[in-house]
Amino acid sequence: MSQTSGPSEVVFDVLRYNPEKDAKPYRQEFTVAVTKGMTVLDGLVWIKENLDPTLSWRSSCRMGVCGSCGMFINGLPRLACANQVAHLHSDRVVIKPLPNFDIIKDLVPDLEAFFTRHRTVKPYLIRRAVEEQNQPTSEYFQSPQELVQYIQFAYCIKCGLCLSACPTVATDDRYLGPQALAQAWRYSADARDEGGKDREQEVYSSHGVFRCHFAGACSEVCPKGVDPAFAIQLLKQDLFKRKLSGCKEQHGSPVTAPITEAKENPKIPKAPAPTLTK
């Protein structure tokens, strides 16, 4: 990995806002000594530990997996933990909370509306045979080719960057947004799923896929390489094909035969006994 050298000191220009005390958001500057490999999140942690313990943000894993530390950094929605200060090539790091969300405090966005949209599209496998789904006797069949149809959309970490970059979300608060629509496609494209019809009402509503301008900003900012703009086009393409073919019922992949003759592999150590009992 290439190491980009940057300034030894940078100014963190952070938007502060405490709705209980402040009438409106204001900016505060902190000077931070940059160390090798320091991420924006590291800088914020340093500020909190050394300069201002009241500074608030949301973070968890520090390795671009949990999707908690989405912020608007130097004009782009990014994960604070996945961006090194030196790679920003600036002696000033301007940090604001993600656009298109209300602010809970400082850099903490209110993601309630985001997860409400996410739940709206029923982001889980839906099967007609509910008994098998609730009390599985075996696994649903899925080929590697079928996996490829949706796998990139399964990498979504629900960080909200795509929504904060979306120009339609900025103007239409009823728009489902790229994250929810990409997840609708992730499950509808899954060969094991039979819930395409259940998602239709929301996905193909007047504030669903048809509101997308195809600006592509969602795909541009996604830290996991998910392409929500493509998912939206695939949803439209799928709708068109199904309309042409007369809206055929979706049939999920079959349940594989129950495993009856499994032999224990002596090379694999046994799982330890449960530490908790009911």
Partner: peptide, 11 residues
């Protein structure tokens, strides 16, 4: 009428 049908006719 459903939005998806309106859009399909539009195409």
């Amino acid at each position: 009428m459903r939005e998806s049908t309106l859009w399909f006719w539009h195409l």
